[in-house]
Design a protein around this nucleic acid. Structure first.
Lengths: 207, 207, 207, 207
DNA sequence: TATGAATGAGTGTTCATTCAT
DNA sequence: TATGAATGAACACTCATTCAT
């Protein structure tokens, strides 16, 4: 095995472990010791690869952000027919797949955002990027082009992006609490989401 | 001044300070020292009145929960005409007033809920209580009576309760980031909320 | 009820509670809070009556010491016929009664003595007083008058006083551990004690 | 130097320092800070090697117990001629050597035992082990085989084991107080012990 | 006498980080 | 790359003692 590969694997394992620990206990509640244990590496090795606990958080945020923005549903959004419920359903499914793959970090990002003076506002960065793409969607998408941009942003953030992130962050707890399987929950959520957010923002959507 | 009153004040001040510290740094990130400083009391006094840092969190959660459920908009919900946009607007405004008075603790509750194995699920408790009230609303409220309860709950949670709590938790950051005043932001949010969630759940609402 | 009487009672109750707490957890392990709880008084009241936790210990030691040295078996020792087993048995029983009434403090004194640099050496004070009385016993007592005083003191301390104090301190644990009743244990102990210590120091004892 | 040896040294040094601090101030009176200072290590290092202050105490007790029970005088007891004063003297000397090497922990064990509800009863464990060996001594040892076992145990505990432990625990204070050298004190103590305890339990001993 | 409130100095323990190898 | 050992600075919590009434 080439040494770079071994390094890569170890280095990556640490980041994955950090994400899991941060998501399960919050950044402040997580312990570097536990990250090391979970990654099955010596604690000091974490500091060989990374500068600090803080850096792990930042790397996690940027990589999550990049992954999401480079994902298929994100880049291919402009080819979607927003008036077709089937297409929207497919798009939402793809999007949720991408987000759920990084749900650890999304949870974390939400926790950080909830603090009064959040240092990390990845969620806003992603949101702003997404908004940019939306405003450049072709006319064919038939999305409501509101008279004022602030209103559109507020709608998109509080009834669009956030409910989706909330779903990603909280769906497992919901499954546990109400004993429902993932597939049904997701289908129901998308149904609700289409009926509320998309029905409002894409008035011409055909149900 | 009667001794009970003096005690009340100090004891209460600690709880308030705790809410602020927790909301600004998260439960694990908050320091008892800082709570003491903010409340302007001796640190040991905190332990004279409360058992532990943990207990502060729990008391905060239960009192918030009780306050919300006993609030005017909550108890008078069944007298609201859900088909009248004006009434809904008024109800939402009242509700947001109540929630914003406790936004510290709501923020906290959201952070806790985001952890993989959240110990505190006040939000679910409140949600379940609210759902109970909703299902017992009079026919006249004209709310969509969905064929299956799980779907209704999912809609209510992910596109109803959560966006509202998100608004309460994140509106200040939004104001900071996008330089918008509170009144406008709230008006816009309610507008979006009525157009999405209520338009869906109260089909007969007259715009 | 005259005020002095009430005071006496409360003040005394504190001392008794202190003895119990000290005996059960050691001086350093005992908490002033627990003493107050046990005495059913306000914690601050302890400091109204006594200067400090330390003072409680000292008062306990001096009162115990005085009580023992003024006790009947102590003052009437010189009238005992040491050659008569019955008389010795009776004397030992009286002595153990006196000591057991103060076993809390005796336990404490032993704990303190075990520390490398014991501040409180009540046990030595008592021992030295007892030695003085012994050396002034009438010839009739028939106690062995050893050629050298140090040897006599060593015998008296390590095979006389200490086993008795040990019995007082540990007999309850013994009862618990070996399921024996107090009367049998005491009878057996005295039997052993007469057969060992007294058989040696009073050679003319008639069995 | 092999790493295990370096580790051993530091780890061991902590335990030794703990024994000294505990013995000099009692378990509750001892400070982890002082243990660290005495061992010349960083306080946190103590928790790197050991779980808690409590664990230090327990390890001290078990190692002391094992050492004593595996010691030469203990294992070779059955080859001793109990009727020969010289042999007994030698045995006692060996035994005291072993015990004095661990006098810190013995002191500690006595302090713990004196508490009303002692958690650590190592002394009883050792005692019971010793009793087992005694009852299996060959006939040739000529020890008194008492009609009833409880009586034998009580004799052995209160006039045998305890005076010996007391000697180990208190002989240094005695030396300080009465200005006697160790050799003389020990010789006198053994003399007294043979004349009392052994004279009673080994009636055929030739003086 | 009695009490609820308050406090300074600790107390055991933890933690992110660094060192030496 | 990897690790066991080590550390300084906290950290939540406790305690004997005092204050104000």
């Amino acid at each position: 095995m080439a040494p770079e590969i071994a390094e890569q694997k170890t280095k990556e394992r640490i980041l994955t472990a950090a994400a899991a620990e941060f998501a399960s206990k919050g950044f402040d509640g997580a312990r570097v010791d536990d990250i090391a244990k979970r990654a099955e590496v010596n604690k000091a090795l974490i500091y060989y690869y990374y500068k600090s606990k803080e850096e792990l958080l930042e790397l996690l945020f940027t990589s999550m952000s990049e992954e999401i923005l480079a994902s298929k549903p994100m880049t291919e959004m402009h080819t979607t027919d927003f008036t077709d419920k089937q297409s929207l359903f497919r798009l939402m499914n793809q999007f949720l797949d991408v987000l759920e793959a990084r749900q650890d970090v999304i949870r974390l990002a939400l926790m950080e955002l909830a603090k009064r003076t959040p240092i990390n506002t990845v969620i806003f960065s992603i949101f702003e990027d997404v908004m940019g793409r939306m405003f450049s969607l072709p006319e064919a998408s038939e999305m409501r082009k509101p008279e004022n941009k602030p209103q559109a942003m507020i709608t998109e953030f509080f009834t669009g992006i956030l409910p989706i992130l909330d779903y990603v962050a909280y769906h497992e707890i919901w499954m546990d609490r109400f004993g429902i399987d993932e597939a049904s929950l997701r289908a129901s959520f998308i149904e609700s989401f289409l009926g509320t957010h998309f029905a409002y923002t894409v008035p011409k959507m055909k149900f």
